[in-house]
Design a protein around this nucleic acid. Structure first.
Lengths: 205, 205, 205, 205
DNA sequence: AATGAATGAGAGTTCATTCAT
DNA sequence: GATGAATGAACTCTCATTCAT
């Protein structure tokens, strides 16, 4: 960042910050609607109400605005999940209700930015930095899940809790994705019910 | 007299068939290595040892060769899983061993074409036809899994077996993917062990 | 032609002649239907029932088959006009009937190969040889017209008959074209009637 | 938010307007010299001194620039004919002089853009929009001619003046074309003289 | 600082022609 | 002689990025 410091503006003035955010929002919207490869910088700039020239004074390139969109997405998603999980007290519930609550909050989160979430799958393999941002996010989620589960630790029957957290979190995420996105002839409720049962039976006595 | 009659060559001569296969192989390789969006038809043609003109006499466009690659991948994968599952008798094994065998055969399959498999995730959302080809493949896999599981039906404790098959198959696939692809500080064996346990405990008495 | 004599076959065997004619016919049909630039050699070959390779043993290139189509068109058109004009005796008719008969025979000729005729306009400027073939044809037509008109010479009032033949033939051709091709809100009969009147009044006492 | 909103630049800045005009001029020149089908967008761009990218920000494709060239040509031609016909008073002339004047003004117009004019014949059949633009232009010319001729109405002997206007205008145009373009062994003056005589004798008592 | 016109490499695609079989 | 697969130059069009104003 030392050598290119005056190429890309690091916004300090308030207006500048707002412009940058407007670009990120516009980009997120367009990436969600049409995908990264079908969105061009001219469209992003126009949607954000700035010129293409300005776009390039806020971001080095198109990839950079995607990365910032991803970071914003990650922050929002975490906040949302935190809020949702924070509002309940695990100990005062039975396990099934607690896990069901967790699944619901994941379902809700996946639905809010569902299109952007889809686009992430497309981008995952295309870039190391994107990949590691997403891996970090996954890991953060996994650790949160782990600590959530550990609230009911007295009743856990799994021994390798670390491995279990990977397995459970991946299962939760992928099956929630499936519920949200895949066409099926089986209702979401039935799937959710089985998912919750699988997790509960697996983890608890 | 139709408009599209002579657009795409339907190979009849042996040479022609070989050329078509060479193009598909080359395409699969490049899509796996660099991704669909970073591979162009010139590169595919060159890798297959043919001219761009030839490419376009076998395939209408880049998308078409991807679809043929996908079909080939699907066929190979199914054959591989069938072979692997067919060689064991579920009834003569305890549940844990049987499911472990299944996970092993999925792991092996995912490893063979691992890079192409990754690329599929990228492409899933980009095209209706690709999506439905993959959905079909998923469904076929799910139904095979279901019937495999039903061999031990006497001991099943799940009631909604249809919903269970979706949940189990998605969990299996995504966690196997994770084991193959994601960087972790937890060994594959530990993850595999928990995965098998989760499935067994969930399904059987 | 000396140096390339074995590149392009000069058909002597009967089958060979038939093949060449089949190609010309197919080409004419396709050029008429879709235009020279939208017809490719593969389509011509297929329509003629030969391979592209064979096409090139009968014609040096695509242009050559167009030129042969043009020659055939010219021959057919002349034969048709000759037949039509030959069947009447100018002297036994009044001038108006005679010119009307001539216009009718031109109208009929233009209608038969109307689409190919249109395509000629497209090609006229693209090639010197095509241009001179068409110019020759025009001149031949003009001279025939001239001699036809001269049958009623006793009554002609024009003095510069040579210049008149250019003017009359061009007027006839272009107005007949207009009648055949252009969309108007004036009936063909009214136009034909005026055309005939214009020619008659101009030429004869 | 539309799909095509930002595809083609609508020039606002002065520089932009100049660029668009430069492209049209360059295109007209090249179409005239080498024909539409033998001119490509790269050549047009180069001749206009811009990049291919710029070309495509002003015109959707090659056809679009042809259409704009045609419109410009039509405007210029009409202005020229109007100016030429406007400068004389029909009533103060005898018929022969008046028609001769008209032919002269057409001759002059056809000579200015003669090559582009030729190319129009080529393009007429290739495109509905081009066709109707040319038809409109023809009709406009025909109606102007008609009203010009009607200035001497007292002496007209034709009854179906509408049909006559089609016939006369087509004859004028095509014969003027022939005078300008076709190689002959008859002088332009002799042809012009006969053309004028034909029109005068046909129309007037 | 902001603008948006301009750039040009590079993508996908076509087709007249050649040539191995 | 015939075939049709193969060739590759040429073409249209796009878009991330730059730069004159």
């Amino acid at each position: 960042m030392g050598e290119t410091e005056d190429k890309v503006r690091t916004p300090q003035q308030e207006r500048s910050i707002k412009t940058k955010e407007a670009i990120i929002q516009a980009a997120m919207k367009l990436f969600s609607e049409k995908g990264y490869h079908n969105t061009n910088t001219k469209q992003i700039s126009a949607a954000a109400g700035v010129s293409t020239g300005s776009f390039y004074s806020y971001f080095t390139d198109k990839r950079a605005v995607f990365i910032d969109s991803l970071k914003l997405y990650n922050e929002n998603l975490l906040a949302r999940v935190d809020a949702s999980l924070g509002e309940v007290d695990f100990k005062s519930m039975d396990k099934h209700t607690a896990i069901a609550h967790m699944v619901d909050s994941l379902l809700e989160s996946h639905q809010v930015y569902s299109e952007f979430h889809k686009e992430l799958a497309v981008m995952y393999n295309s870039d190391k930095e994107i990949q590691s941002l997403m891996d970090e996010q996954f890991d953060l989620g996994r650790r949160k899940t782990l600590s959530y589960l550990q609230q009911g630790q007295g009743d856990l029957k799994v021994e390798d809790l670390e491995a279990a957290s990977w397995v459970v979190f991946e299962a939760l995420n992928s099956i929630v994705d499936m519920i949200v996105f895949s066409p099926r002839n089986v209702s979401a409720d039935r799937l959710k019910n089985e998912l919750v049962r699988m997790i509960v039976v697996y983890l608890y006595k």
